Amino acid sequence: MYGMHDIVEMKKPHPCGTNRWEIIRMGADIKVQCTGCGHIVMISRRQFEKRLKKVLEKHAEN
């Protein structure tokens, strides 16, 4: 599963060439930020789960 501040890979790469996204907000919608150019996108949880390929890095919780 995925959580806040995890780095995820989506099925399609971002136009900047990077395919790594950081989850910065979770709720009914999920806000992700491109780790390459910093672009922020907000998509519905349903679309996010459909487009998610895999979780690359889990955020270390204290």
Rank of each mutant, 00 (worst) to 15 (best):
Met1Pro: 09
Tyr2His: 06
Tyr2Arg: 00
Gly3Phe: 00
His5Cys: 05
Asp6His: 04
Val8Met: 05
Val8His: 02
Glu9Arg: 14
Glu9Ser: 09
Met10Ala: 02
Lys11Met: 09
Lys11Glu: 07
Lys12Ile: 09
Lys12Phe: 03
Lys12Glu: 13
Pro13Thr: 08
Pro13Tyr: 04
Pro13Asp: 02
His14Tyr: 11
His14Ser: 06
Pro15Asn: 03
Cys16Val: 04
Gly17Cys: 05
Gly17Thr: 11
Gly17Phe: 01
Gly17Lys: 04
Gly17Ile: 02
Thr18Asp: 13
Thr18Val: 13
Thr18His: 08
Arg20Ser: 03
Arg20Cys: 05
Arg20Thr: 03
Trp21Glu: 00
Trp21Gln: 08
Glu22Ala: 05
Ile23Ala: 07
Ile23Trp: 06
Ile23Arg: 01
Ile24Glu: 02
Ile24Phe: 04
Ile24Asp: 07
Ile24Val: 15
Arg25His: 14
Met26Asp: 09
Met26Ala: 08
Gly27Thr: 03
Ala28Gln: 13
Ala28Phe: 09
Ala28Trp: 10
Ala28Arg: 12
Asp29Leu: 07
Ile30Arg: 08
Lys31Ile: 10
Lys31Asp: 08
Lys31Val: 11
Lys31Thr: 15
Lys31Asn: 03
Val32Asn: 00
Val32Arg: 10
Gln33Gly: 02
Gln33Asn: 10
Gln33Cys: 09
Cys34Trp: 02
Cys34Ile: 04
Thr35Gly: 01
Thr35Arg: 11
Gly36Thr: 05
Gly36Asp: 06
Cys37Val: 11
Cys37Glu: 10
Gly38Tyr: 08
Gly38Met: 09
Val41Gln: 12
Val41Pro: 00
Met42Val: 14
Met42Ile: 14
Ile43Leu: 12
Ile43Gly: 00
Ile43Ser: 06
Ile43Met: 13
Ser44Asp: 14
Ser44Ala: 12
Arg46Lys: 15
Gln47Arg: 14
Phe48Ser: 06
Phe48Ala: 05
Glu49Lys: 14
Arg51Trp: 13
Arg51Cys: 10
Leu52Met: 07
Leu52Pro: 00
Lys53Ser: 15
Lys54Pro: 02
Val55Tyr: 03
Glu57Val: 13
Glu57Gly: 06
Glu57Phe: 15
Glu57Gln: 15
Glu57Trp: 13
Lys58Pro: 00
His59Thr: 09
His59Asn: 14
Ala60Cys: 05
Ala60Lys: 12
Glu61Val: 06
Asn62Gln: 11
Asn62Thr: 03
